[in-house]
Amino acid sequence: MIGTPSVVGDVMTRTVVALQRGAAFKDIVKAMRGRGVGALPVLDDDRHVMGVVSEADLLRKEELRDGASGEYTRELRSGDLTRAAAATAGELMNTPAVTVRADATLPQAARTMAQHGVKRLPVVDAQGELVGIVSRSDLLKVFLRDDEQIAEEIRRDVLPHLFAAEAEPVRVRVRDGVVTLTGRVTDTALVPVAVGWVRGVEGVVDVDCALAGPSRRPDLDPDFPDTEGSPSPPTAQAGTGP
């Protein structure tokens, strides 16, 4: 779909500051402050991502700088204690690195971030080489999509596959990303399917579904005679008899 950010490569930041294994502690701090980021990827000589150094990794040194109590240090993992004594990116980095492919969908990237508790991910191509960085704020760009673009996509790519044969078209209205569907449809079993498909359209915040089944003609009261077009009952004639 033209103009629709559908994969990580559409929203990622392509200009990336990366570290070599031998990057010094102070140079890492300067790079983070200079770029305003909280984590940097560490690359090997072929631009493959080996690991990631975060602000939390750097702060281990500050936590123990004044001599922490034995009880405090016992609560730390051995890896944290090692990072507190580290002086280079190779010693500080978390490995293996959690990365995402440039052709991954935005929901896939969001799930990866949630599962690993990270705010940004190095983006790699099919060969595993670094091509960008994607952050939480990048993934949220999809919700800046124009309401009319969302409505047009639903009318073009969703409704014709479900309700093409309806006598009246299903009406779509989008306001602040919230989609409202109204109208009558022949097969109400397709309504939950339609809601699911609409939720999958990028930029949709919520769906307010007011689709109803076909209108029914009211049943006539069986005790009310239908006189129109029916034969008149026979009438007795005066003065006749056997």
Rank of each mutant, 00 (worst) to 15 (best):
L190V: 08
M32C: 08
A24N: 08
R216D: 03
I133C: 07
L58Q: 11
F143A: 09
V142S: 09
G70Y: 02
I2T: 14
E148F: 05
V8H: 07
A165T: 04
L59R: 15
Q127W: 07
I28D: 02
R33G: 06
Y72D: 05
V172T: 14
L190M: 11
E202S: 10
F224D: 11
Q108P: 05
A164L: 01
V170D: 04
A85M: 07
E129G: 12
A89V: 06
N94E: 05
A194T: 13
P41E: 03
D147Y: 11
G213W: 09
L220I: 11
A23F: 04
I133Y: 02
S232V: 05
D27H: 10
G22C: 03
A194P: 02
S135A: 15
E148G: 01
R216Q: 08
G79A: 15
Y72W: 06
G90C: 00
D221F: 03
G229T: 15
R77L: 11
A85V: 04
P160V: 13
T112D: 07
E153M: 09
E91L: 00
F163K: 13
G22M: 07
V29K: 04
D45Y: 04
R33K: 13
E166C: 10
V172S: 10
D80G: 11
V29M: 08
T15H: 12
A97D: 00
V195G: 04
A23Q: 09
G9I: 08
A212C: 04
T188F: 01
I28M: 12
F143S: 01
E71G: 11
T13G: 06
P242V: 06
V100I: 14
V193E: 12
V49P: 03
T4R: 01
V98Y: 11
S232D: 10
D208R: 15
T235Q: 15
V170G: 01
R47N: 13
G70D: 12
R65I: 13
A85K: 11
G239H: 09
A89E: 01
L181T: 12
G22Q: 11
T88N: 10
E152T: 14
Q149D: 12
V100K: 09
G3N: 03
A97Q: 07
L140F: 15
D221N: 15
H161E: 10
V7L: 00
V131R: 02
A236I: 07
G70T: 05
V198M: 01
K30E: 14
T99Q: 14
P96F: 12
E71A: 14
R155S: 09
T235E: 15
V8S: 09
D187C: 01
E148A: 12
L106D: 10
I133L: 14
R33M: 10
V142N: 08
P169V: 10
A109P: 00
R111A: 13
K61S: 13
K61N: 01
A68V: 09
L19D: 04
